[in-house]
Design a protein around this nucleic acid. Structure first.
Lengths: 206, 206
DNA sequence: TGTACATCAGTGAACGCGCGTTCACTGATGTAC
DNA sequence: TGTACATCAGTGAACGCGCGTTCACTGATGTAC
């Protein structure tokens, strides 16, 4: 009895997870179309092809749903980076920075959420913990790449500086007035490369 | 008749400006207490000691009022910087960066607004223009300080990088989990100094 | 000086809207005996 | 195999709230003759 029940129960769990996924996917599709703060539960329901009230079977409230979407995004970027590092691309800081930048330019909604959560931080306990974990993971990626074999306080600082700078570039020039998206992007990349090289040489020399 | 009428009219204008100022001040006081997106017209009215509908005698809508508050903030920071530069303090990039940082840490609501507008950019024409002008002014300050006597494309890039990095520091570590405000601040300052020195030496050397 | 009129600050009450969330219910599927 | 019961996905309609904004009005002050 125990194994059989377990299998059935597991299946249920999996189906539930799959349904949650459908809802999150619908939300992310909408995030691609408009600022995520403006996406309502009604819209998500419509996009997912279900009733509004059904969403509440899978998420206790709107914030949890949004945080879930954010966390999935984080996992995606981390997986992507890990893979590239393992395959030997992404050896220097400049490449890594560009990849981080490009990911966030393309997944703009994800960047918006990140900024929004960083700016507000009015989250209840467990959600906040999830988010901090996500941010920490990203920071560690920077850290690992710069540290090479010997992590140190100094390296950690450079990693922080680099992380902050890239976020700052994304914030500060995203609405660069009078520029086309492609121009904005190339300007951002130029700046990222500049800072990365500054950071690298400084880290090497001192 | 012409001169007399003019005087009267001018007085009226000035009184009007003064009343606008009272409303903006009330708003800013509230911004110090809670995130500015959460400040409602009703609250501002109460804080200013007037009726809600009275606000609409002085501002066409909420957004204009907020933008006005933001623009005044920008003017304040620029005036402050100009003064210090004129008086000979603030000769190097590091000092300048720290001052910029400190201003935004202390006027947190101002930083929030800045980020919010940068992130959204869903403003109608004239308001958008006002904001861009404000941002440009700040960027020019960076530019002027680094350029010394010979402005160049390269200098401009370094200024941009510095500007972005500082904004990024403010965004990325403002909710550094488990740190007290004083610790956060000193961490931010450390990073700002690090980047400024990287930037300075790089700009000098190459 | 007195009178009729224009201007404008200021107001309380109401409008209309969109939102997140809850409720009571249906119907299908699985479980126990 | 049949029956009574439990579980749970899914739903449409409604609740309640807070918000920005508008409206019709009052009363004070300035202007013209």
């Amino acid at each position: 009895m125990a194994p059989k029940r377990k299998t059935f129960a597991t299946l249920r769990k999996e189906e539930r997870k799959a349904r949650q996924g459908i809802i999150v996917d619908a939300a992310e599709r909408l995030f691609g179309r408009k600022p995520f703060e403006q996406v309502s539960m009604r819209e998500i329901a419509q996009e997912a092809g279900i009733a509004v009230s059904s969403i509440y079977r899978y998420f206790p409230d709107q914030q949890s749903l949004f945080v879930e979407a954010f966390v999935l995004g984080t996992q995606e970027i981390i997986a992507r980076v890990d893979q590239r590092i393992a395959s030997g691309q992404l050896s220097n800081l400049s490449d890594f920075s560009l990849m981080y930048l490009d990911f966030l330019i393309e997944h703009d909604h994800y960047f918006r959420m990140m900024t929004h959560f960083m700016l507000d931080g009015q989250l209840s306990g467990p959600l906040l913990e999830k988010l901090n974990q996500a941010t920490r993971s990203i920071l560690e990626q920077f850290d690992r790449l710069m540290a090479g074999d010997s992590p140190s306080e100094r390296t950690r600082q450079h990693a922080h500086a680099m992380f902050a700078s890239l976020n700052g570039i994304l914030i500060s020039f995203r609405n660069y007035p009078g520029r086309k998206p492609a121009e904005v992007r190339s300007h951002m990349e130029k700046l990222a490369r500049l800072i990365a090289s500054m950071c690298e040489s400084h880290h090497r020399l001192t």
